[in-house]
Simulated assay, not measured.
Amino acid sequence: MSPLPTEEWDDEVLDALAPLLPPSRSNPRDAGNVLATLVRHPALTRAYLHFNAHLLLASTLSPRIREVALLRAVHVRRSDYLWEHHIPIAQRAGITPDEIDAIRQGRPADEIDRLVVGAVDELDAANTVSDATWSALRDHFDERQVLDLIFTVGCYQLLGAAVNTLGVQPEPH
């Protein structure tokens, strides 16, 4: 599925992007190919972006932990588009290129990063986490953070599946 052509962008499309994008970025070029494709269904896009905006902008997780979870989730779901898109975001959150590579390999050096990567892998493999992982998560995160972690993983697994299924192409540089 291709991005919605520029001439078809109307007020309904702009309204669909409002939960995540400021008006200055609500255009086919700045929205990017994922959002420009999703807006083919404005009501669904708006609902999804309310959820996604919480995870990106209001989560109780630190930006670093969010990006560790998100990167691992899109890696195990083989969404190259989202992986590449989030590398600069992860770097802005303080994750080094070596740490990003370790997340991809499933072997972060940092104990908390390792716990988060393990939780993502368990969620991917079994759709749940083990009692041991749950206990370790609760040793480091409060209830809201654990919920934000689980939903961040699920959100980006879903988005990765959508991006891959729709054949969303990278933006030209």
Score class of each variant (00 low, 15 high):
101 D>A: 15
94 G>V: 02
102 A>P: 13
89 I>A: 13
35 L>S: 03
166 L>W: 08
58 A>S: 03
95 I>T: 07
130 S>W: 05
111 E>V: 12
129 V>K: 11
125 A>L: 14
173 H>I: 11
67 E>H: 11
169 Q>I: 06
81 Y>I: 01
124 D>F: 12
156 Y>K: 05
122 E>C: 04
25 R>N: 14
75 H>T: 00
100 I>P: 08
68 V>K: 05
104 R>K: 12
120 V>H: 14
45 T>E: 10
171 E>V: 09
12 E>G: 00
152 T>W: 09
84 E>H: 06
8 E>W: 07
85 H>G: 06
41 H>D: 01
43 A>C: 13
173 H>V: 08
34 V>F: 13
149 L>A: 04
102 A>M: 02
65 I>V: 10
170 P>L: 14
2 S>E: 13
137 L>F: 02
171 E>K: 03
38 L>I: 02
159 L>C: 10
97 P>F: 11
9 W>R: 04
85 H>L: 15
116 V>C: 01
2 S>V: 04
138 R>W: 08
141 F>C: 05
130 S>H: 05
28 P>R: 15
83 W>H: 05
57 L>K: 13
38 L>T: 07
49 L>Y: 07
13 V>N: 06
105 Q>N: 08
119 A>Y: 05
108 P>Q: 03
9 W>F: 03
153 V>C: 02
114 R>Y: 08
80 D>T: 09
41 H>Q: 14
158 L>I: 04
70 L>R: 06
33 N>G: 03
137 L>N: 00
55 L>Q: 14
165 T>K: 02
29 R>E: 06
141 F>H: 09
115 L>I: 04
73 A>E: 11
82 L>I: 02
161 A>S: 07
27 N>P: 00
62 S>G: 01
3 P>W: 00
2 S>C: 00
62 S>Y: 00
108 P>G: 01
19 P>C: 13
109 A>Q: 13
22 P>N: 11
131 D>T: 15
103 I>R: 09
140 H>N: 13
63 P>R: 03
65 I>K: 10
127 N>H: 12
89 I>Q: 06
62 S>M: 03
163 V>M: 12
96 T>S: 14
140 H>S: 00
9 W>C: 00
150 I>P: 04
78 R>H: 12
6 T>H: 13
93 A>L: 12
58 A>F: 10
138 R>M: 05
159 L>T: 10
7 E>T: 07
34 V>M: 05
21 L>S: 12
11 D>R: 07
93 A>M: 10
89 I>F: 13
120 V>E: 14
115 L>T: 02
148 D>I: 07
147 L>R: 09
11 D>M: 02
115 L>F: 09
70 L>D: 03
82 L>A: 07
125 A>W: 07
23 P>W: 13
94 G>F: 11
92 R>Y: 01
131 D>M: 14
145 Q>I: 12
102 A>S: 13
54 H>I: 00
99 E>G: 02
31 A>E: 08
172 P>V: 04
